[in-house]
Amino acid sequence: MNDDDPDAELLARIGRSDAEAMRELVARKLARLLALAERLLGRRGEAEEVAQEVFVRAWKQAGRWQPGNARVDTWLHRVALNLCYDRLRARRDEDPYDESLAAVADPAPAPEQTLQAKQRGRRVAAALARLPARQREALVLQYYQGLSNGEASVLMEISVEALESLLARARRALRAELTTEENDKP
């Protein structure tokens, strides 16, 4: 068992068909994987499908899990990323950011101040969606998911230096889009 991995024991229990452990893993990781998929795909509905499929695969593959190879969290990210790649490939000809679909993410009406924050959030989402896929992926993994450079670069199968280059380019593009417009205060 990997002592440094807080999720390793949970996955081992899932490998023994422990349904309660699966529910706990879902409670622990769903928000995180959902956020990853939503920021990469720009669509809540698709992100939910991806997150659900990650847990379906986790149940099926948990019995073959090898502790020590990678952290469970990183492995779940790997599965989610692959599912996102599949979906992004399938919609190459589509608009990268569909406002009407993304709006599903805002289920409740909000006070004016919150509404303004949500509008800014949607601007960031739209700007993220317009980034080249690899830049967006680097930024989402490192900034939003909080993965270390080492973990993110392994997931993306690139060097740490290449990751830093992608991050810098992503931030430069976002800064140009977000902070140089008329109202550039977040």
Binding site: L34, R39, G121, V124, T179, P186
Partner: peptide, 12 residues
């Protein structure tokens, strides 16, 4: 300033 912008992207 960019960090502040990025932090506005909060998901439900």
């Amino acid at each position: 300033a960019l960090d502040q912008w990025l932090d506005q992207h909060v998901l439900p």
